[in-house]
Design a protein around this nucleic acid. Structure first.
Lengths: 218, 218, 218, 218
DNA sequence: CATGAATGAGGGTTCATTCAT
DNA sequence: GATGAATGAACCCTCATTCAT
């Protein structure tokens, strides 16, 4: 699981730099290590109670070393959020093609949308600490925007192809609400025992399915 | 608005002590003042960024006096949560009688459930800071349980009368999910402009309505 | 010596607040204690190497207590500088009346100007750390301006009455230079043994005397 | 250890090693690069705020490499001070011959002494950061002594030829004071606009001239 | 020798909590 | 009870110095 995230993080980071030389290779790995460590601490403690010292300890480095790679605590959160946003978008795009969902039933479509999100959340427990409530410290709010935008963009896109007859306002509202539902149910899902989990997931999907049907018949 | 909460707080607390002497009366008033002050600060800053000094200042007392009435910060939150739970339950019970909702359409029932919750959230902006995500400090998580239980109890009760054919597990799950939906949409609602708000509320109700219909037809 | 400064500091501070109640009395004393402690540390270490922890330790209080009275390190320096400026100005004004130096010889005038400055520097060893070079940390530069202005104002005023025929530019320049001379010689003076000190002082006064004579004959 | 350090520093600067192999030649160049880099940073930031990392960056080398050539930050300052002392002495000796100033007027003599010092300060902006106040870190105080000695030696020598009738104590005192005056005025001079500068310089020279005259007539 | 990542002590500052008055 | 100054651990961050590569 961690390797998975590490791989994602590394992928997300190197994707932006064209020619990583060997010199930078270790640096990139360190950055990835720090980010995964930060993710673990964030998952366990939440943002405010996450300490840079704790991140460093979790990463197995000294406090000072953090600052070789990040200017401050917020920047760690910001970069992690960016990484998450990229990873989630990638997972989503791998799961289905926005432009071709014509053959799918509504239930299937929902599966395609939800399942990668759920998988991503389970695989990246730090994600939810950054996809968060509006009482965030000011600096962090901006940092986590990429995540929101990545999600909203996908869902709005889907609604556009499925419900061209609805207004943009309606679609935006529906997208926002659906995302909030999934987000709200997420802690229950990730916390639940493995055998309880599918039950909850099914229930969330039922709610979304019913809502989408309502949207179609409106 | 604040008087309202203060009244509630006092009511909830004094209800248990039969013969409060003057000494205690003043103490109760102080407790209520502290709690309303805490609510204001919590609403503005969120739990982690709420300072005991700030609460004391907002209450117009000295930091030391806080600790005459509360053992620590978490206990303030816990007692406020209890107060909120009582207030919300009272508001709910005033709005409708669980044992007699036979004449209501599903949509009407949802209104009866949701509207007091919304009103309560708008009137008590500190509420949401305590009705919160699971990355809370450990002590607080337990403290806020009364709120969850108060809500869950009402909704489960309602579902029992409406859907006696569903299993207890199903009803619990449905109640939890419905509450989470409302909770998730709450920030959007309380933050929204006055003219945007009804639109969002309608949308949330549509989702719940659709879900309940699905539950009935299942 | 320290008591002296403490008295001055207290005097300088209370002078601005109209009705210090008893409650504030201890606070004022603490402020004075902190300022004298800061002065001692500054005298020994200079500004940059002066630690807030060291100031607190020197004042016999905990680090956190500093911040009950001062927002940050710079503010301590600023308030100390203001106190010094007031104290020096007071000492100066006590020593001679600007508007009536007519009867004095040039040498006597110089004595009247210099002696209080020297006494003040000897009595307040922290003074020189704040009356300082232009490579100061940015925040401090503004904080120490009161000291410069207090001195410059006095000397310029004196030159105006003595040398009305000189231009304002010339007087400003002369004042600045004379102050710099005294400032430059100050470490030698305060560091010197008690028996060496008068020799150095005499020499400084000779230089200033010669310069003033030159200014008159120019 | 410090004596040792001092000796090494002196040795390192002067060309005492007869057959420098290429290895050493490159080392000497590196040392020079580091010292000029240090000078630039010192000029801009002052000693305390000068970072070894900043010096290394300015020199275009890695932080670790600094420590190949210097044991610590203070040693860099010490060696730079030695270099400056040598440079200033050389400039001074080039400007006039101590043993033959017989034909010069007092004013001309002062020009000969001052002008190279001013020129040196303008040309070497890092100089003043090391020719500095006595609140220096302990290690640095010793390190910068060469500069003081170089200057003092020259001026004392000059006073010896000009004022053989004055006692050694008087000459030493006068030399110290005159140097301090120039040092004190230096920031004003180097900071001033190009058109203001001569005015200040003239004023300083006037003061020194008046003082020297006083010394002669004493 | 060079590199630059790593170190960790220490700096300024905050804040929940205590305690003398 | 009330006050508010005092406490001190802990936070975020810097930087002189070291060390593996």
């Amino acid at each position: 699981m961690e390797d998975q995230l590490e791989a994602e993080a590394a992928a997300g980071a190197t994707a932006q730099r064209t020619a990583p030389r060997k010199r930078q290779a270790r640096g990139e790995r360190r950055i990835a290590e720090i980010l995964t460590a930060a993710a673990r601490v964030l998952a366990a403690q939440g943002y405010e109670r996450t300490t840079t010292n704790a991140i460093a300890a979790e990463a197995g480095i000294s406090p000072g070393s953090l600052y070789q790679y990040f200017r401050n605590k917020d920047e760690i959160a910001a970069e992690l959020a960016t990484t998450y946003a990229a990873g989630l978008r990638a997972a989503h795009e791998a799961a289905f093609d926005l432009t071709d969902v014509t053959g799918l039933t509504p239930a299937e479509t929902i599966d395609r949308v939800i399942d990668p999100i759920l998988a991503f959340n389970v695989a990246n427990p730090g994600f939810k600490a950054l996809h968060a409530r509006p009482d965030m410290p000011p600096g962090l709010a901006a940092a986590t925007r990429p995540i929101h935008e990545a999600l909203r963009g996908r869902v709005v896109g889907l609604l556009e192809t499925r419900f061209p007859e609805r207004s943009a306002v309606e679609r935006n509202l529906a997208a926002q609400l659906m995302i909030q539902v999934v987000q709200a149910a997420m802690p229950s899902i990730t916390t639940a025992d493995a055998d309880e989990r599918p039950v909850i997931i099914t229930e969330v999907k039922r709610m979304l399915g019913a809502y989408v049907r309502e949207l179609a018949e409106r």
